[in-house]
Design a protein around this nucleic acid. Structure first.
Lengths: 237, 237
DNA sequence: ATAATAGTGTCTTTTAGACAATATCAC
DNA sequence: GTGATATTGTCTAAAAGACACTATTAT
């Protein structure tokens, strides 16, 4: 590439990876998609799924490839967004590797450990993740991703990404409760959600969940941002 | 770097740059630090200040170097934070260059067009910026930076970064008004600011600004986040 | 005095939060 | 009926916003 440069400067060669913080909720527990490294460096440690970005590939293309190849997930089924880049010179012992972190949210339904999944990917609860040793700086990338997700629940409609296409308001409330480790008043939550224009749309149907009164079924609305926001309890956690 | 890899895979070589959205307010107008490109590609167009990241340099190190070399600014005097990365394969005609965008905020005082500034850097009002043709995808990086700054004013103490070490609440209010293109009620603004714990600290001194009653002088407090937040008028703009 | 900006107070509307009351199902 | 969850309503407190009023300077 330096051949085409008009300035007599040969910039240092970096490798670029994308690394994904893929989150889902399983039985009200926040889980992270991890792979078990089979090769050096950091053999045996857990890592975030990620790939080297190819020479002609967009970053989003590399993300979609990672979801398929490493996660066994269908990219069109989930929300993803860029998190931040991590570029410390010593973050990868193999050389200078810059990683662009992405946050992805999967609904519980799609498939936890599908057949498409290559040998290594699996869901690990965040609680277990925190007890393990991570490869590279992936613990920091994970922390960034989890905090971003928790924060975006406040002012965006991200919570619906954790739900299937149709869901009840109790399920949606469960997303907030699991992500924030706090309980929310069902009545007040309903009022806020239904007053936020474009957050959810009622389908008119009801679902009988075994016990209690059947709940109305909703779908995600058009809005991306919530106004007014739903605030976390800054005390708890 | 590929020599040390244990996997027989040679990842494509990227160049990595940092590009800075440096914002300041001059006479209540939002201004952006731009350089006039003297070389191909995009010779003659304006661009954000930026450098290639060196082989052993951190990203933040490259940002500080850019501020000094390109902007003639002293990095310790200003706030900066990572924005996002831009990696489209065709964003730079010279080859595959990934840019990590940073947002930096300068107080008016430091020096607009210092002697330290290398030939090219200067402040351009955002209004003028939008009428010009930008090099690379810098118009998009700028848009991202300006929107980030506007959004962060709502829930963080970022506004104080636009002010000198000591400032009046009218000056602080002026930051919000200029950034959001809306006027805020002086009384209500004062109440919100002084009720947000850690936003500002009174120095006890007063400043005579020529006309009207002299204003109390404040310094930035310890807090980084604002609670409750100060909301924009979502209608205007 | 007037003009100008700083700062305080008051009232109304909106939102948040606690919590009671009612609704609709399974059993 | 009881038990469970859904949904609505009511009351209080906090915050937002409009706006009047007072304070302190220069001229």
């Amino acid at each position: 590439m330096a051949r085409k440069m008009t300035v007599p400067y040969n910039p240092p060669a970096f490798a670029v990876t994308v690394d994904l913080v893929v989150l889902t909720l399983m039985q009200q527990e926040l889980c992270v998609l991890v792979i078990q490294r089979k090769e050096a460096p950091y053999r045996g440690r857990i890592a975030l799924p990620g790939v080297f970005v190819r020479g002609t590939e967009t970053l989003e293309g590399a993300v979609r490839r990672t979801l398929k190849e490493e996660g066994g997930l269908a990219p069109q089924e989930l929300h993803f967004e860029q998190l931040a880049s991590f570029g410390h010179p010593k973050r990868d012992p193999r050389g200078r590797v810059l990683s662009v972190g992405y946050l992805a949210i999967a609904a519980d339904l799609p498939s936890p450990d599908d057949a498409r999944t290559r040998e290594k990917a699996r869901w690990l609860s965040l609680h277990d993740c925190e007890k393990r040793s991570w490869a590279f700086d992936h613990a920091e990338i994970l922390r960034t991703g989890v905090e971003r997700a928790r924060a975006k629940l406040e002012y965006s409609t991200l919570a619906t990404s954790f739900c299937a296409r149709e869901f009840t308001l109790s399920e949606l409330r469960g997303v907030y409760e699991a992500m924030w480790n706090q309980s929310l008043d069902p009545g007040n939550f309903r009022r806020k959600v239904t007053n936020s224009p474009g957050f959810v749309e009622a389908t008119g149907e009801r679902r009988d969940s075994g016990t209690g009164r059947p709940a109305q079924i909703y779908r995600a609305g058009e809005a991306l941002l919530l106004y007014p926001a739903i605030h976390r309890d800054t005390q708890s956690e």
